[in-house]
Amino acid sequence: MDGSTIFIKILLGIGLAFNVLGVVALYRFPDVYTRLHGTTKCTTFGSIFTSASVVVYSISKYVTTGDPRFMTFTIHVIIAIFALLITNPTAAHAIARAAHKSGIKPIGIVDKLSEEKAGEKFS
């Protein structure tokens, strides 16, 4: 039980907690947009933390064994993290726009976008 194992456990715990919160958000929130809020943020953050624990694990393996395979492993995991970080918000944005264009009204007190579109139709 050295320092890196404890660090890995802490990172994994944070990541798993946020991932599970993402699932809870998907069941609790009332409409598409609020669900997107919960899932996009929580799962991106959680997946980054679980992957970061894998990075710490492979770096500690590299330090103890000196095998260059673990260095490759680290680089590939970091590339995967950046892929998630770039693609996730873009996909969320695309889904939100598609949902709005297909005519799903958001639950809430104000909807500026629908007002703008209605105004354009009249004029």
């Binding site: 990541g15 993402g22 598409v32 997946s47 694990y57 490759t72 995991v77 889904i95």
Partner: peptide
């Protein structure tokens, strides 16, 4: 609605990526 399903699918994909990274650490395979 259909967008709800797409949201679920997107989240599922994120989870699959995270799971694969963790499996890679578990089996030590790049």
């Amino acid at each position: 609605t259909v967008p709800d399903r797409v949201v679920a699918l997107d989240t599922l994909n994120t989870f699959v990526v995270a799971t694969m990274v963790i499996l890679g650490a578990l089996f030590d395979s790049i």
